[in-house]
């Protein structure tokens, strides 16, 4: 019994310590973004990787999800003669929830994993130590530009995903479900409110930040060898995905129930 309690206590302490390290790392990273020296080349490369190169996967994901959502709502709505709500539900579903969440998960899959693998490999091959001996702070040179890129790219990608998701629904609605294009667009625009859009973009900032932070954290804390790189990559994606979904719930509660 005592051993069992000791196990629970040790696990709780371990989780608390890990959370503490993560929070301290997050604070240090965000502080590093606003404190010189600034590495503009690295920030530019980060924006290219996190933002521009993630656009295709985000765009395709949102387009197909919006299209599928329109079909589902039409089929479901038909059960109680509510087929006409397709434009409104697609718009609110994509903008409030699916757009930000899909972008967060896509960044986690494409960017978090690559950041974690890159930094973990740098650690294993002593490149991080080399940076320090060359008087360069890895937090400012490697972490800050990537997290900054996540914070900037997140809302931009969400805006693109929202638009393409709605467009996917519009395509299906007008081409397969016989909606009038003008009416579909008017219903979409009239139904969306400013808080729907702003909450979506704020979620994008949060999810972009979480995804890049997790990649950096697990990359810099990787274990030894190929196994260490693999474990860091896997853990970073899992942690990013779980934190993004948890943050989505918290932000939704704040925006729409407060």
């Amino acid at each position: 019994m005592i051993q069992f309690l000791a196990y629970i206590g040790a696990t709780a302490l371990g989780v608390a310590a890990a959370l503490g390290r993560l929070v301290l790392f997050g604070i240090a990273s965000l502080t590093a973004i606003v404190r010189p020296p600034f590495y503009l080349r690295e920030a530019g490369l980060g924006l290219l990787n996190v933002g521009y190169l993630t656009l295709p996967v985000v765009g395709l994901t949102a387009l197909f999800t919006g299209a599928a959502l329109a079909l589902q709502i039409y089929a479901g709505g038909a059960r109680f003669n509510a087929e006409a709500v397709v434009p409104q539900i697609v718009a609110i579903g994509m903008v409030r929830e699916l757009g930000p969440v899909l972008v967060g998960l896509m960044i986690a899959a494409r960017v978090t994993s690559s950041i974690a693998a890159e930094l973990a490999t740098m650690k294993v091959t002593e490149q991080i130590d080399a940076l320090v001996t060359l008087s360069t702070d890895p937090l400012r040179y490697l972490v800050a530009p990537r997290v900054l890129a996540g914070l900037i790219s997140g809302p931009v990608l969400v805006a693109v995903a929202d638009a393409l998701g709605v467009f996917g629904g519009f395509l299906v609605g007008t081409q397969a479900l016989d909606f009038n294009p003008t009416t579909y667009l008017r219903n979409t625009v009239d139904f969306l409110t400013l808080p729907d859009v702003t909450s979506s973009l704020i979620k994008g900032v949060a999810f972009g930040g979480i995804a890049t932070l997790m990649g950096c954290y697990y990359g810099l804390n990787a274990g030894r060898g190929a196994q260490g790189v693999g474990a860091a990559t896997k853990s970073s994606v899992v942690a990013a995905a779980v934190l993004i979904l948890a943050a989505n719930f918290a932000l939704t509660a704040v925006f729409f129930t407060a």
């Binding site: 091959t125 130590d129 080399a130």
Partner: peptide, 18 residues
């Protein structure tokens, strides 16, 4: 910074930035 500026180091695997 001043301390590290006095040092140079050759790492075992060279540790060049890829």
């Amino acid at each position: 910074d001043a301390f590290l500026a006095r040092f140079g180091m050759l790492f075992q695997g060279a540790a060049l930035f890829d």
